[in-house]
Amino acid sequence: MLGSIPGSGMAGDPAPVAVAEAYRSPGRQSMRRFLAHKGARIGLLMLVAWLIMAAGAPHIAPYDPDALLGKARLAPSLTNWFGTDQLGRDVLSRVIFGSRISLTLGFVSVFFGLVPGVVLGLSAGYFGGWTDTLISRLIDAMLAFPSIILALVIIATLGPGIVNVMIAVGISSVPEYARLVRGSVLSVKAQPYVEAAWLVGNSSARIMFRHIFANINGPLIVFTTLQVGNAILVGAGLSFLGLGAQPPTSEWGLMSSEGRQFLQRAWWIAASPGLAILSVVVAFNLIGDGLRSGFDPKVRSR
């Protein structure tokens, strides 16, 4: 087993092109490929715009999102670009303030999925044996739930609320993270540098995080980016069902749900927040695909 260390024959003949590329650090190469991706640049621009809007919401929004402007269900006009809602609040201002909740939801819930998922996946892949069997069975069983259903069970226990939605959406993505990380660990574990790190006397935890984790984070970053968008989507859906944010919060899913009764006469109440979600999630998907081509030189952008 130990005699068959792979890779020893590969270092012999580096192609001239590879040498030229090697002078740039892998991180910078990935960055260049990422920025060369047209979709990724558009996505990045959209995301930055949304981040600015979320951060500067009080300065950017034309009105107070909770202020009653007097006239309810006003059609979009020059004074109220997205019209006013059923209570006479400015829809545009509410959409801008809603970005704070949705972006927070995206990042926080990804954290709740990423951390336990990575720990489980790393342990399963690195230790193998019964640890692996136990964790893998657990992952399989969790994957037996369509993900929104798993989120529903968790909300059923925690009770409705936007913070609970963040936790639920995050936890329901744990099995996917764990599966992804476990697979990558298995492919990296047999590499000579891991063995070398072990021989020099590093602890398991140090090998796992410094040596293995550092080499598998490419696919993880791609998945996480896509997952932020997905979490925003699922979270808004749960709020639409009444399980997340509660009135009078300006949350995108909730706003569409409130606008549903007035759809026939005042479509803009339900439509505007949906367009906002669409543009945010498309941004994350574009960035995710760009990152994928950045980390994986085999995927060439056209």
């Binding site: 859906g237 639409f240 899913g253 569409s256 949906g274 979600i277 669409l278 998907n285």
Partner: peptide
């Protein structure tokens, strides 16, 4: 679009 549109919104 399919990966980015909320189902409820498309329905509405």
């Amino acid at each position: 679009l399919g990966a980015s549109i909320p189902v409820y919104w498309l329905g509405l």
